[in-house]
Design a binder for these strands. Structure first.
Ligand code: ZN
Ligand code: ZN
Ligand code: ZN
Ligand code: ZN
Lengths: 134, 134
DNA sequence: ATCTAAGTGATAATCATTGTCAAAGAGGAG
DNA sequence: CTCCTCTTTGACAATGATTATCACTTAGAT
């Protein structure tokens, strides 16, 4: 019943390769980097690849305060986790706070809510960027 | 040095009134409700009023997973807090988790990040909506 | 009444993201 | 290899929330 995984094409391989540069970046950013590296992949294809990789759990996404989606190659695929992200350069650390998971569920139950979901994200400025004056 | 607060106009009063209906709703939703109540306020004016009210701390905002901004009259203006929101009807409870504030700062410091900010939001389905089958 | 700066609302512009669709590419069968 | 079929691609249009414009109105002040 699980859909067959999409075929690995030249474009998707290129997306995966550029993602290894690391950091949370927008689809357009990743697309720019691909073109810079010689790929001719279209923007729509990059969006499709990122969407597919997100669905399979190979890519993490976060939403900025402007509603833009940022994508990053996921390092700890199996575990649910959260991020501490540098607002200046896109670098990010995986963080986990096991107690938050249970806290979210119990707060929801206390108020009579079901199907609880939660969002926990931290942003800041990493030490490198702070040294460079942002 | 603080900018003079914007004048209280008929339109802003109308926005404040309709906001008392409660719940987190989009700017367009609030605009529809205003028109339904007889106001002729334009959509741009509603956006401006919501923005101004947000700046003064009279309105809370939250970002949906689709990047849409939702606005709600703020009940506990002075305290920094987080929300448990019903995805079906927009109802929301203020929640606070004082330990999260310190945790965010210390996790940031551990990783060498400065200027830490954080997002903690819960969503679910409230008991009324659950009874009504969503 | 007159002047002036702020506020309004219809509309156009912006911008990330998604939809469309004809053309290109990859397999498979013959 | 050739023909057929299904997937993927990429240029481009469409969407939808938000913001910018700008001529017009309004609320105070003189
Ligand atoms: Zn950085
Ligand atoms: Zn979690
Ligand atoms: Zn509800
Ligand atoms: Zn907080």
């Amino acid at each position: 019943m699980t859909d067959a995984p999409p075929r690995m094409t030249k474009q998707r391989a290129a997306v995966l390769t550029v993602l290894k540069q690391g950091g949370f970046r927008s689809a357009q950013d990743w697309h720019d980097r691909l073109r810079h590296d010689g790929s001719t992949a279209g923007l729509a294809t990059v969006y499709r690849a990122l969407q597919a990789l997100t669905d399979t759990g190979d890519v993490d996404t976060v939403l900025t305060e402007t509603g833009e989606t940022l994508y990053r190659l996921c390092e700890a695929r199996e575990e649910h986790h959260h991020h501490l992200r540098c607002r200046a350069c896109g670098a990010a650390e995986d963080i986990d706070m096991p107690s938050i998971e249970g806290w979210a569920a119990s707060v929801g139950a206390e108020h009579g809510y079901s199907r609880i979901d939660h969002t926990v994200e931290l942003t800041g400025v990493c030490s490198d960027c702070a040294k460079a004056g942002r």
